[in-house]
Write a protein that binds this DNA or RNA. Sequence first.
RNA 1: GGAGCUGUGGUGUAGUUGGUUAACAUAUCGGCCUGUCAAGCCGAAGACCGCGGGUUCGAGUCCCGUCAGCUCCGCCA
Length: 595
Amino acid sequence: MLPNGIDFTQKTHYCGAVTSEQVNQNIKLTGWVGKRRDHGGLIFIDLRDRSGLIQLVFDQRQGIELFNLAESLRSEYVVAVEGEVLRRSEETINRSLPTGEVEVQVSKMKILNTSKTPPFYIEDNINVDENLRLRYRYLDLRRPEMLKRLQVRHRAVKLLRDYMDRFDFLEVETPMLTRSTPEGARDFLVPSRMHSGSFYALPQSPQIFKQLLMVSGLERYFQIARCFRDEDLRADRQPEFTQVDIETSFFCTDDLFALTEGLIAELWKEFFGVEINKPFIRIPYRDVMNRFGTDKPDLRYGLELVDLNDLAQKSEFKVFKTALEGGGTVKGLRVPGGKSLSRKDLDDLTLRARQLGAKGLAWTFVEEDGWRSPISKFFDQSLIEAINSRMEAESGDVLLFVADSWETTCQVLGSLRSYFAPQGLSIKPHFLWVVDFPLFYFNREEQRYDSNHHPFTAPRVEDMNLLESDPLAVRSQAYDLVLNGVEIGGGSMRIHDSATQARIFQKLGLSEEESNEKFGFLLEALSYGTPPHGGIALGLDRLVALLTGDESIRQVIPFPKTATANCLMTGAPSAVSTKQLDELKIKLQTDNDKE
RNA sequence: GGAGCUGUGGUGUAGUUGGUUAACAUAUCGGCCUGUCAAGCCGAAGACCGCGGGUUCGAGUCCCGUCAGCUCCGCCA
């Protein structure tokens, strides 16, 4: 049934909602012509609207004029019909259709519009080039499974709006035309006509605004916020994407985690009907890297990395010793049943390890009487037994070793770990919080420290004394929410006093003039009674894709862009007229201008 | 910026070591058909093989370039 309260004149029911309850009623429907089955004197039409399908029947004996009109119907014509709902005879019931017990004997029909033959079938499970779907996205979205995705997205957003509202959060809009900032991703720029030579930037996220809203005393803010980043794309990355943006005052990390976990649990309850175990486990960054070799581990399987520094020290293997002397790390990964790996497989793995930055990959087959490996001669029997024991190796396994800097060792083995992930993992959710990220990392290219998260992230108070002596050891109050190997959100407690903020800017290599020029308004704001605050942002596109079971976020974005940031439907981005450029006082560089 | 894969009627695919009329299914159009729901039967039309160049007597097929899409690295929180 259609929503009550207004007498809709064009349709009384949704097609997909016509059931035996309406038998013998006269109803009005509108929709698109789907499949047409023409038996000569009898025509069946599948009429489709956003709710589903209903079968229309046209019988020649009921009147030739209407019947001739029905004969002229083609795929995707738009029609309005009126007719009687009839119960189908037992043998003609279609059990695979929710409306399959009934059909509509049409008495009146108006063709509201005709249609060209669509370039692909308007139905589920089609197998066409995504190119074509994106070019005709409006037709792609007409397919029931795509409409359903839009519906899931709507329901998810509604659920979280209701949830946030229940906890007194206010949804506030922040500007799309804002100031370019030096940190983070490349900005999309918008030239200013009124201030030629100046540019707005589209927000990479509402970060600074949401913090300023805390200064404003809003206490609890959220927004379904569109964000823009001008970087190269991936399957799970679009130039514009949507964040569930949350910021709170007077919340500690535990409060924020509980809030987020409650929200996630409601989503999973609503869409999967499952109860999620709370609270989610928390693992410090250092530990997830040591155990899984990634900051977004998939906890659905084991294959944890094993630290071998002390044992490797006792070997005669130069590669291990050199790495350890240089302050590096030796770790191992056990591949259960790895004896089926061929020499070529191992060569491929070595190549893979090299591509990831390792100098090489050591390996051994584990057999009843010891190791079979090019490096076994560097390990005496007791050492082999000690390593086997620590790695819980059994005969028939293969052990892989990497000796390199701590970061490289973890990262390379982490990648190999995911390579050996079991097939057919259940979708059972394994949530986890990764906490205690390092505040900084060293940017080799720029030869300076950069923020891991962003420059407003609060350091752990007890680590502040390391800020000068060992900046890389300073932990932050930043956290990521990870599900089955996918990062679905992240955030931090923020710096809320201008002195600390100024110290961090300094550490990041921003001079006082620069930080005042770029962030002076923020530093000033922090000096006006800023409450302790922090927040989190969840990737809505990814979240919805998880709810729909889609691999690609393009499936849940109504009008996505391609890997080269093109919109195949509108042709954006496009050239603009000289007049437009002149107004902006912009002159395009030709290829000849380039060096 | 780099690497890999893909590109053949509207759509999805086939096309052998290079060999002459580019095949099949489906959709489309026409005819027949009163219980189909992947309707059925008969017939017709529909492709300069992404684009440009090269090798060759001959290129959908081999080579080079280019464009587009996808995936990955760099990049990105």
